[in-house]
Simulated assay, not measured.
Amino acid sequence: MLSAKDKRVAQIQSSYVEEQQVKAHFQERKKRGLARRLSFLCIICGILFAMFTSIFISQNTVITDKEQQKKELEKQLSTMEKEEGKLKEEIKKLNNPEYVGEIARRDYFYSKPGETIFKLPSSNGTN
């Protein structure tokens, strides 16, 4: 470790020199510990950043899917509400005896006493 030139130079052996060597050694250990702690902290921050980014992306995907599903369900709701309105109107009509009689004569060929029913071909070519 010491070269031939360094062996010729004698070091002063005093308490001050020893204190300075101990102090320098302590400072060096302190710097290495700080570097290790900072490296560890950077690694932890990187891992947390990656986790939060992954969570954000997955939540964003889920939200987009849910919004699309909501739009589809709203369309389905509007068509069902229209159908409900038609069915309620049909219920009102079916409570009317004249309308029920008209349907019975048209679809089931019922007739009033003394009435003759003639079925004419429809205008669009179907029976």
Rank of each mutant, 00 (worst) to 15 (best):
K71W: 02
M80K: 03
A35E: 13
F56Q: 08
K112L: 10
R105I: 01
V100M: 09
F52P: 01
L73R: 06
F109V: 05
K75I: 08
V100P: 00
F49D: 05
N60D: 12
I44K: 06
M51V: 14
L94Q: 04
K66N: 06
K82F: 13
Q13D: 15
E81T: 02
K7M: 14
K86G: 06
E74C: 01
V22R: 12
L87S: 11
P121A: 13
Q13T: 09
N95M: 09
F26W: 06
L120W: 02
L34C: 08
E19D: 11
S54H: 11
E74S: 03
I12G: 02
L77F: 13
P97I: 01
I44P: 00
K71S: 09
T79V: 07
Q20N: 03
L38G: 01
V100I: 10
G101I: 01
D6M: 06
I44V: 14
E72L: 14
R105T: 01
K30V: 02
Q20Y: 11
L77N: 06
L94W: 02
E115N: 03
L2T: 04
E72Y: 07
Q11P: 03
V17L: 10
I12D: 13
I47C: 13
N127C: 07
K75E: 07
Q59I: 08
N124C: 04
K82M: 09
S122I: 00
C45V: 11
S123M: 12
E90W: 05
R106Y: 03
Y108K: 05
I63E: 06
M80A: 14
D65V: 04
I57Q: 05
L87P: 00
R105A: 05
P113W: 07
R8L: 15
Y108M: 13
N95C: 03
L48W: 07
I57M: 11
